[in-house]
Design a protein around this nucleic acid. Structure first.
Lengths: 108, 108
DNA sequence: CTGTATCCCCTGGGATACTG
DNA sequence: CAGTATCCCAGGGGATACAG
């Protein structure tokens, strides 16, 4: 990120899971190994551009592994590393809390 | 956010705490009531523009209250609502996990 | 002090087309 | 199937100046 955020754990998290799709991709992988197009299908609206971009970033941070099977047609599987799986508790907590927050649209 | 994300709890969270500063502001308020300039001082680099923008959004979602004291000079205090405080566990978890993730810069 | 108003930049993300 | 390459857009965010 261009913005220089303060040095704290939360900021590290924000840089890693930057952007609206990042967290959703991790969430999808939480359910198990996924192939490129399986992820696309599970994330309606995401473009291959974005998906590739996020996946590559996760790889460099070591929270996702990319396994290539030299077959025809080619097959590539993405899977969370143990470290990646540990994010599950956080995503679950995020979902629970967010649902409790009232929707301003329904209020105003 | 312009992007239409899937309908799930995690997505709600992402929309609400959109942007790198949002979460950090909540984190700061977790420590207690803060005035506008106290937040600015605690968040080096944030512009009044951004701070105001995020704070207003939090208000509309009911996770932050804005109390205005008709004094001279004017004083305005921001405080998390009980609902807002409940996000503490999530931010703590985020920080713990993120610190465990290796920094790719130090690896490459 | 607490914002608001402009103007500009940057990056995530979409759309589309094309390759190994 | 699994990407990569372009081009474009939206909006978060910074800087600065100004207002209540």
């Amino acid at each position: 990120m261009s913005t220089k955020l303060p040095e704290c754990g939360v900021a590290r998290f924000l840089v890693l899971l930057e952007g609206p799709w990042a967290t959703l991709i991790v969430r999808e992988l939480l359910a198990g190994t996924r192939r490129f197009n399986e992820l696309r299908g599970a994330l309606p609206g995401i473009s291959p551009h974005t998906l590739t971009s996020r996946l590559r970033k996760f790889e460099t941070y070591g929270i996702v592994t990319r396994t290539i099977y030299a077959e025809v047609p080619p097959r590539v599987e993405y899977e969370l590393t143990p470290l990646g799986y540990e994010a599950k508790a956080i995503l679950d907590a995020m979902a629970v809390w967010a649902v409790a927050v009232p929707d301003p649209a329904s209020v105003e």
